[in-house]
Amino acid sequence: MKITEKYKHEGEGYSPFLIRPGWQVAQLNYEESLEIENINRLDVHFETDEAFLLMEGNALLVSAQIEEDRIAYDMQVMETGIIYNIPKNVWHTISLKENAKVLIIENDNTHKDDFEFYYFKKEQQREFLEAAMDIWP
């Protein structure tokens, strides 16, 4: 008799794979768009916190406050085995280096309709990259 379910995401990018009423587990694996120099936006969720767990590799988790096109960052080089939470209504992004894998726990509809993007202006993207490279070369 098999009762325990198993899930594994081997491909690149984001995959929500365990979805239940009210919550879901997803995995984010490295893909080229997640390299620090390719990050061009922040996103926010209005209905859910989003918890992140670095499973392997290297990742940079970024939360931010935006006021009149000025962005203040809180950047965390993630440690394996530590759970990081981004509260709802907080702008954020994540950058992964090759072979990194991150587990994400959030509301079940987050990947469908609970998000908004803030795209960087050219100068904001340069400032973001400079700030990130200071702690995560």
Rank of each mutant, 00 (worst) to 15 (best):
Met1Lys: 11
Met1Leu: 09
Glu10Arg: 14
Tyr14Ser: 02
Ser15Tyr: 15
Leu18Met: 12
Leu18Arg: 08
Arg20Ser: 01
Gly22Val: 11
Gly22Ile: 14
Val25Arg: 07
Gln27Leu: 06
Leu28Arg: 06
Glu31Tyr: 05
Glu31Pro: 01
Glu32Phe: 00
Glu32Gln: 06
Ser33Val: 05
Leu34Asn: 00
Glu35Met: 14
Asn38His: 13
Asn38Ile: 03
Asn40Gln: 15
Arg41Cys: 06
Leu42Ala: 03
Leu42Gly: 02
Val44Asn: 05
Phe46Leu: 12
Phe46Arg: 12
Thr48Ile: 08
Asp49Gln: 06
Asp49Asn: 15
Phe52Arg: 07
Met55Phe: 04
Met55Ile: 08
Asn58Gly: 00
Ala59Tyr: 12
Leu60Phe: 10
Val62Lys: 02
Ala64Leu: 13
Ile66Val: 12
Glu67Met: 06
Glu67Ala: 13
Ala72Cys: 07
Asp74Met: 08
Asp74Gly: 01
Val77Glu: 15
Val77Gly: 00
Glu79Arg: 06
Gly81Phe: 10
Gly81Leu: 11
Gly81Trp: 10
Ile82Gln: 04
Ile82Arg: 08
Ile82Asp: 01
Ile83Met: 04
Tyr84Cys: 07
Lys88Gly: 01
Lys88Asn: 03
Trp91Ile: 02
Trp91Ser: 07
His92Cys: 07
Thr93Arg: 08
Ile94Leu: 14
Ser95Phe: 00
Leu96His: 05
Lys97His: 03
Asn99Gly: 00
Asn99Gln: 14
Glu106Trp: 02
Glu106Phe: 03
Asn107Gln: 11
Asn109Gly: 01
Thr110Met: 14
His111Gly: 10
Asp113Trp: 09
Asp113Ile: 04
Asp113Met: 11
Phe115Lys: 14
Phe115Asp: 00
Phe117Met: 01
Phe120Asn: 08
Phe120Gln: 10
Lys121Asn: 04
Gln124Tyr: 04
Arg126Leu: 13
Arg126Ala: 10
Glu127Thr: 03
Glu130Asp: 12
Ala132Cys: 15
Trp136His: 05
Trp136Phe: 15
